[in-house]
Design a protein around this nucleic acid. Structure first.
Lengths: 118, 118
DNA sequence: ACCAATACCTAATTCTTTTATGTATCATTG
DNA sequence: CAATGATACATAAAAGAATTAGGTATTGGT
């Protein structure tokens, strides 16, 4: 697993893109899905995920429906139309960003000949 | 320019990788270099950059030397040996992270046929 | 009966970055 | 030659997102 700091700022993107794929998911399902798809390399914490889901809902990107499973209540999230647009934008933005970053880091080529000070 | 939030957590990586490339740079130079190399898409703010440089120095990844240019004093930063290792790790970590993220987002394929609620 | 997994949630703290300054030198130009 | 924009450093308050650390409750397996 990475030092989680790289994950910062990507949580909304992840959530939106998964919902663009799968149409309807609940919070816990999202954490498990991400964990599996990334072989445990990305692990969402619930303390970050739930507030994000609530925020996206408040902003009109997600809608919810509650489904009873026995005595438990699951809260399913789906994209609204705006949410779909937002998913597109966020995913494209991330892709452009990671390209730009990789270009920037690309010239990086460790040089063992370098002289080190103190 | 992107919503800067994606940049979060990448500032150290950028600084370290540039210094691995160029051996000796000063703060302002770093901001300009990044701006040019990314066609203005990534713009480092000084309020974020200087504290980061100080922190990396305090952690022993960077050393400084002051150079007088006329009446001005420039503060040049270079990697220490540990800084070089750190640069390697950070850059590799970012690359692995962006691969993982792109895999995760890859299945994303906007579907205009989808039904939207409310 | 107990424990791990499922499933939701929030609050305090931490940490990074933004925003907003402040100081000072240097080069250009009207 | 005064004004302005670029160069060059720096810090401090505020904002914002995530971590850490709880809390509640159901379900399935041993």
């Amino acid at each position: 697993m990475y030092s989680q700091e790289l994950l910062k700022g990507t949580l909304q993107t992840i959530v939106l893109s998964l919902l663009a794929e799968k149409e309807r998911m609940y919070g816990y399902e999202i954490t498990q899905h991400v964990k599996e798809k990334t072989a445990g390399q990305i692990q969402l914490t619930e303390g970050a995920l739930y507030p994000t889901l609530h925020k996206l809902e408040a902003e009109g990107f997600l809608t919810t429906e509650k489904v009873s499973i026995g005595k438990r209540v699951r809260k399913y999230y789906s994209l609204t139309e705006n949410g779909n647009k937002q998913a597109n934008e966020k995913v494209n933005e991330f892709r452009r960003f990671s390209e730009t970053m990789n270009d920037l880091l690309n010239s990086f080529n460790p040089n063992p000949e370098l002289q080190w000070r103190s």
